[in-house]
Design a protein around this nucleic acid. Structure first.
Length: 738
DNA sequence: GGAGACTGCGTTTTT
DNA sequence: CGCAGTCTCC
């Protein structure tokens, strides 16, 4: 009992109520920095320790591998428990586990391969081409979105109504699914849909898992999509308790299918009597929290919640208006120097931006200032081309009939099998409904000889897989495929070669971590037939966990990332940059319903990452897509409480087209006064926006100062470089975007 | 088959 | 502007 008390020590009443809810489903509305992860992990420890559940009766699901790992670590620190016995992981990881265990019922080979986003796109391209469809009419990227969208809504091709316009797409969706089935390949959305279908069709299996899992716990519930919620409902049997934690204000993934409505649906469908709200924030100081609260109140669609802190007000946020993006970066460099001088570690400072394109100029400034930094985002280890190439050979070693990998590996490094030869092979394969590998014999001549040699290589690797350990197999792949030699020869191949060597290390640590015997041949399954072969497990691991972003983790460096990737993290000091209309909120978001509110939540997430210091900035001009764009400050800046923000605004800013002189709202604000902004409607003006650079045949280049009126009376006030300010009717004036 | 020119495009991202 | 993807020519 003493241990129980230790778990619960230091929890506030709401946290304790959530952790110790004895029966019934729970919905926790957990604000940013309110101790959400702690509640989730303590709940699991409490359930097990008080004997309310065995570890095998727990299923906890998160969105990222990182969150799953953290949860496991924290539980492990509280209780001695075998982590394998609990089902803790990502939706995709758990579905993978389910499908590998019940591969026959799911009608899959046990060694089915998982297609990541890139693999899926490649498979779609291949399929579209094979179907003889013009990819102008059916852009593979859009088809990919269509397919994933359908799967995430739980719909197969046959469930989709065949409107004349969509018929082709629906057919291609069906063709794609059949191709995947033939290849034994499963994409990310399929992992979910397939296990959903498995459980919904197979009553015995469903019963089995419903009786086993007495506690389902869901993290980041606001990010679940429709199918994930249905999956949870299916798994939640009569004796099961669902514990969902989420924050509607931090729902920022609607654009990829997240359905915040799941929270309200859950509340209703599971008869939640009382939602537990965690509103005490332990992270940020008063002014920062006040800024976040004030901003988010502008959203109409909220469950409602207000964060408070027992900590003091702290320092006000600082807002900088810079004349250009370069000066914005220079200001940031200065502030960072001050922070460092004041004792803040670089790794405790984050520079956030709305889109990745903004990082370049920041990196440039930091580099020149000699400040070490680390950029998150971009290619991860298992997504790198050279790693994917090596993985393709490994997949062929496991299954030579894998056409995706075959296509990738067959002529890389080049071995004289060009596009013509491949077409012949593909035709032969299609005609006989066999895999590419199985059709090699059908190709005659010189190309046939090259293909036969490739086939011998694959057979040699297969043989190696059955006798040698996984790391030995990886080494053999690098040597025998010619990949190592290829990159050694290439001018800029050194980094790639090092990455390939790192792949051997990755397989070594994988074997050790997963508890495989170091000598086990790569393709040998365990004594227990349910135990995967090291190679199979490694291939799944590579697809499900793309690996870390880049090296240099150990050193103390500034953290640069998009606001999205900052979610879940916290820093002593946070810079939010590029607060300009069109950038943040992003212009593309304005056209979609609810888009602006999502952008605002994004801003909310950004602000709440900061513990002590918050720096906001925007630039009057910014080089974007090769041209200078003049922006006005983000509406989000206006939505911050005056008392919590200190405005810095150098009067000396050299703004070529300063409009403040003629009384418009466009231009540097006054630091002493809260500037009330009169803003015209910004949408529906033939795509023109305030601050946009335009060109007129007679007046030349100018900037849109204001848009007003509507329909045929829609007018733009424009300041031209030479002709001064004019007001033009959009319906009449021949305005071009410049 | 591969280097080099040319075209088009340009949110956010995890699995 | 910078990149990825395609096209062209050797």
């Amino acid at each position: 009992m003493r241990i129980v008390l230790r778990f619960l020590e230091g929890l506030n009443p709401q946290q304790r109520a959530a952790v110790t809810e004895p029966a019934g489903h729970v919905l926790v509305l957990a604000g940013a920095g309110s101790g959400k992860t702690r509640v989730l992990t303590t709940r699991i420890a409490w359930l097990i320790h008080t004997g309310r559940a065995g570890p095998q009766q727990i299923l906890a699901v998160t969105f990222t591998n990182k969150a799953a790992r953290e949860m496991l670590d924290r539980i492990g620190a509280m209780l001695p428990v075998n982590p394998r016995i609990m089902w803790i992981g990502t939706f995709h990881g758990l579905c993978n586990r389910l499908l590998r265990t019940h591969f026959r019922d799911a009608q899959l080979p046990q060694s089915f391969q998982i297609l990541d986003t890139q693999d899926q796109l490649a498979a779609i391209k291949r399929m579209v081409k094979a179907a003889g469809v013009d990819d102008e009419r059916c852009p593979p990227r859009e088809l990919q979105m269509f397919i994933n969208g359908a799967k995430e809504a739980g719909l197969r091709a046959r469930d989709l109504g065949a409107d004349a316009g969509d018929r082709l797409w629906v057919e291609l969706y069906d063709t794609y699914d059949r191709q995947c089935q033939r290849d034994g390949a499963v994409d990310f959305a399929e992992l979910l849909l397939r296990s959903f279908e498995l459980l919904s069709r197979n009553e015995a299996l469903r019963r089995h898992y419903q009786e086993r899992f007495r506690h389902l716990l869901v993290d980041e519930f606001q990010d679940t999509n429709v199918l994930q919620y249905r999956w949870l409902k299916l798994l939640a049997g009569p004796d099961c308790t669902v514990f969902a934690v989420g924050d509607d204000d931090q729902s920022i993934y609607r654009f990829r299918g997240a359905h915040v409505g799941n929270m309200a649906d859950f509340e209703r469908e599971f008869h939640i009597a009382q939602v537990i709200k965690l509103e005490q924030n332990y992270r940020s100081s008063g002014h920062i929290l006040e800024a976040a609260n004030h901003l988010i109140r502008n959203n109409a669609q909220r469950l409602g919640k207000n964060l408070w802190t027992a900590a003091g007000q702290g320092e006000q946020a600082v807002l900088m208006e810079a004349a250009s993006d370069g000066l914005e970066a220079a200001w940031i460099v200065n502030e960072i120097r001050d922070l460092k001088a004041g004792g803040t570690r670089a790794s405790e400072v984050a520079i956030l931006y709305r889109s990745n394109a903004q990082s370049r100029i920041l990196e440039h400034a930091l580099f020149n200032a000699g400040l070490p930094y680390r950029v998150y985002g971009g290619l991860r280890f298992f997504e790198r081309a050279e790693i994917k190439n090596a993985m393709a050979y490994l997949r062929l070693a496991e299954n030579p009939h894998d056409d995706v990998s075959f296509s990738r590996a067959v002529n890389f490094p080049a071995r004289g099998i060009g596009s013509r030869s491949l077409e012949v092979l593909q035709d032969a394969a299609r005609a006989s409904s066999k895999s590419l590998f199985a059709s090699i014999g059908a190709v005659a001549g010189k190309a046939g000889a090259s293909l036969a040699e490739f086939a011998r290589l694959i057979e040699a690797l297969r043989a190696a897989a059955s006798t040698r350990s996984l790391p030995e197999l990886v080494s053999a792949v690098l040597a025998q495929s010619g990949l190592a030699a290829h990159y050694a020869r290439e001018r800029d191949g050194q980094d790639r070669l090092e990455n390939l060597e790192e792949l051997v290390n990755a397989s070594l640590s994988f074997v050790a971590e997963q508890g495989f015997d170091a000598e086990t041949p790569a393709s040998r399954t365990g004594v227990d037939p349910d135990t995967l072969a090291p190679l199979t497990a490694f291939l799944a691991h590579a697809s499900l966990e793309a690996g870390d972003n880049q090296a240099g983790q150990g050193q103390d460096a500034l953290q640069l990332m998009t606001v999205h990737s900052a979610k879940g993290l916290e820093f002593e000091a946070v810079f939010i940059t590029g607060l300009e209309e069109g950038l943040f909120p992003h212009e593309n978001s304005l056209s979609e319903g609810g888009g602006l509110e999502e952008e605002r939540r994004l801003m909310y997430v950004a602000i709440t990452r900061a513990r002590r210091r918050l720096f906001l900035s925007f630039a009057q001009s910014r080089l974007l897509h090769g041209q200078t764009r003049y922006g006005i400050r983000s509406r989000f800046v206006e939505e911050l409480p005056a008392g919590s923000v200190r405005w810095l605004s150098p009067r000396s800013s050299s703004f070529a087209l300063r409009a403040s002189r003629d009384g418009s709202d466009f231009g540097p604000g006054d630091s002493a006064v809260w500037p009330p902004v009169t803003r015209g409607v910004e949408e529906g003006f033939q795509g023109f926006q305030v601050g946009q650079a335009v060109r007129h045949p007679k007046f030349g280049a100018g900037i849109v100062l204001r848009l007003q009126g509507a329909g045929s009376d829609a007018r733009a006030q424009i300041r031209f470089e030479s002709a001064g300010v004019k007001e033009l009717l959009l319906a009449v004036a021949k305005l071009e975007r410049n």
